[in-house]
Design a protein around this nucleic acid. Structure first.
Lengths: 214, 214
DNA sequence: CAAAGTTATGGCAGCTACTGACAGATGACA
DNA sequence: TGTCATCTGTCAGTAGCTGCCATAACTTTG
């Protein structure tokens, strides 16, 4: 899982592309960490990898994307795992199991990946612009997640609000876990993972009580 | 409440500023609606009001801000109302009362304001960029709200996750209400208000059940 | 192995959002 | 009326981002 370094089942062309992509990503992350996200220009990033600016924008949709596009891989793992959970499970159980699996796969990945994970967590906390981008990623995720939950619950996502509500609330809890890690300076996968578990537990205890007391 | 057109207790200078600000806002909203947010340039907006581009950026932090800065007024009303609620009320009751009051004040405002409200709701739905900006506004709001709730609950917002969780979940429900309105083409204040009430009710019924079934 | 075809890359010109600095206009106030 | 504060316009510049076209690099076919 979280297979990133493209396997060489492909041609030379594809391998070269993967290499440039990772080179750009790593150069960008290091520059962002060294001198700040805002203060780093695209020109500096492409200079470090020795490609043209035009090429950069063929790989990434924008400056934010170079840092956050990696997150989509985790999203894919999460959604795939969720899809594999037994259909008779209550939504919250399936969600908890899926997020648990993703965090485990991050934790057990090789150093190269865990490093990048820590760097991104660090960056998102330091740069307001990246924090906003992360919100956009979460909101894209919300829609996909709601669709999957609707299928599991066998209802229409357009008319029944419940899958959307559950998806959004779940992602909110996860996001707050990440935010808390950032605030406390926890960037390593295992630290983040245990914090997420903790927030999830507090939420499971707090939210039902808070909402029923209306 | 939602007092916008500055009362003339101030001097000529201040009145002129308010007029320019509203002129820019309305020109921008109309242009955005007419030809789309992305397709509208700052130059077109300032040309319609006959001020320089530099002046625009002295009034608004950016292109998105001209559409969304109005929302801050509603935020202020909301937070102020919440502050006035009796301290022994459970958080969710106070939150429900506060949002109810804001929606009422929007509903009962003069046509000029309700018009702007409808335009903004319409725009946020059509433009992805504005939708993202709205997410940022919500996240700023989340922090202020969490702080207020922490005070009400007499806990420390930095160590106790509950106020943040409740604030974030509440805002998530509100946001989903807005999103639903946008999807169904409901932009008028009274339509939006009743939809929000509805989502709130569904959430109060769904979330406790969904989370307790862990 | 060479030619033809496909696809990635680089360079350039241009647009737009946004900012700093300075000079001039305009309301505030004694 | 004159002085002061502040708002406004102009200009020059930076940075993100895109379209266009020629060229280079890989792939496939004969």
């Amino acid at each position: 899982m979280v297979e990133t370094s493209g396997v060489d089942t492909t041609g030379l062309r594809e391998r070269k592309k993967q290499r440039t992509r990772w080179a750009l990503t790593d150069a960008a992350l290091d520059l962002f960490l060294a001198k700040g996200y805002e203060a780093t220009t695209i020109d500096e990033i492409v200079a470090a990898v020795d490609v043209s600016q035009r090429t950069f924008f063929r790989y990434f949709a924008g400056k934010e994307d170079v840092a956050l596009s990696i997150l989509r891989e985790y999203d894919q793992v999460f959604l795939a795992t969720l899809d594999d959970r037994p259909g008779d499970e209550p939504p919250i159980t399936a969600l908890a199991a899926a997020i648990h699996h993703v965090l485990d796969s991050v934790r057990s990945a090789d150093e190269e990946h865990t490093d990048r994970f820590a760097k991104i967590r660090d960056l998102v906390e330091r740069s307001p612009a990246l924090a906003v981008s992360q919100l956009r990623y979460f909101s894209e995720m919300e829609q996909q997640l709601a669709a999957i939950l609707a299928r599991r619950m066998d209802v229409d996502v357009a008319t029944d609000l419940r899958p959307t509500l559950i998806a959004a609330t779940f992602l909110t809890v996860i996001r707050i876990g990440f935010d808390g890690c950032a605030r406390d300076g926890l960037f390593q996968p295992d630290e983040v993972a245990s914090r997420i578990e903790e927030v999830f537990a507090v939420a499971a205890e707090t939210l039902p009580h808070a909402w029923s007391a209306r």
